[in-house]
Simulated assay, not measured.
Amino acid sequence: MTAIMTKRIYDAPAASDGARVLVDRLWPRGVRRDAADLTGWFRDIAPSNALRAVFHHKPELWDAFCERYAQELDAHPEALKPLEDLIAKGPVTLLYAARETTYNNAVALKSYLEKRLG
């Protein structure tokens, strides 16, 4: 399977990133669109605003967040198709804006995709 990585959008782009995909619903503060070097912005696969508000990067809610986020993704498989197409072609880096590097939607999405794509 192709490599799926995660990275803060505030970190400098690297050649090893492959396709760079922003997976947040909101555009990150202080990032110029031309400097982001994005392949795409897939806001439709970001967690719902309601789920984001409940979780708010609290480690104690991580498992519940991942489960509910997976349910949201399962309910809209068509939204995943463009991302899955990119993954089939080569390395993909899922970009996020959160300061929390362990408990965020990109990490949850990476885990979900790795299970889904086998």
Rank of each mutant, 00 (worst) to 15 (best):
L113V: 01
W62P: 04
D24C: 09
G40L: 10
V23C: 02
I4E: 00
P47R: 05
E72T: 04
V107P: 02
W62C: 08
D44E: 15
T101I: 11
F55V: 03
E60I: 07
D34K: 12
Q71D: 12
L86V: 10
A98Y: 12
R32Y: 00
A70V: 10
L117R: 13
N105A: 05
V23T: 01
R20N: 01
P28L: 09
H76W: 04
M5C: 10
Y112E: 02
L26C: 07
D63C: 00
L83D: 03
S111H: 10
R29K: 12
P59K: 13
M5L: 14
D74A: 13
Q71A: 13
K115Q: 11
E100Y: 11
L38C: 02
N49R: 14
K81M: 11
P82N: 10
I87S: 06
R32D: 12
E72L: 08
G118T: 07
W62H: 09
V54Q: 04
A15R: 11
R116V: 05
D63E: 14
S111M: 09
R52H: 10
L26G: 02
A15C: 06
A50T: 15
A12D: 14
E72H: 08
W62G: 04
Y69D: 00
S48F: 00
D44Q: 15
L109W: 00
D24A: 06
N49Y: 07
P91A: 15
D44L: 10
D17A: 11
K81Y: 07
T39G: 11
T102N: 11
W27C: 00
W27V: 05
L95M: 14
L94R: 02
L113T: 02
Y10Q: 10
G118R: 12
R8W: 08
L61H: 05
R29I: 04
P28G: 08
M5G: 00
R32K: 15
E60K: 14
L22K: 01
D63F: 07
K89N: 12
I45A: 01
I45L: 14
D85E: 15
S16C: 08
D37M: 12
W27I: 02
K58W: 03
I45C: 03
L117H: 00
K115T: 10
A106C: 04
L80C: 01
V21R: 01
R99E: 12
A12W: 07
A14L: 13
F65N: 00
D37R: 13
Y103G: 07
M5S: 12
G118D: 09
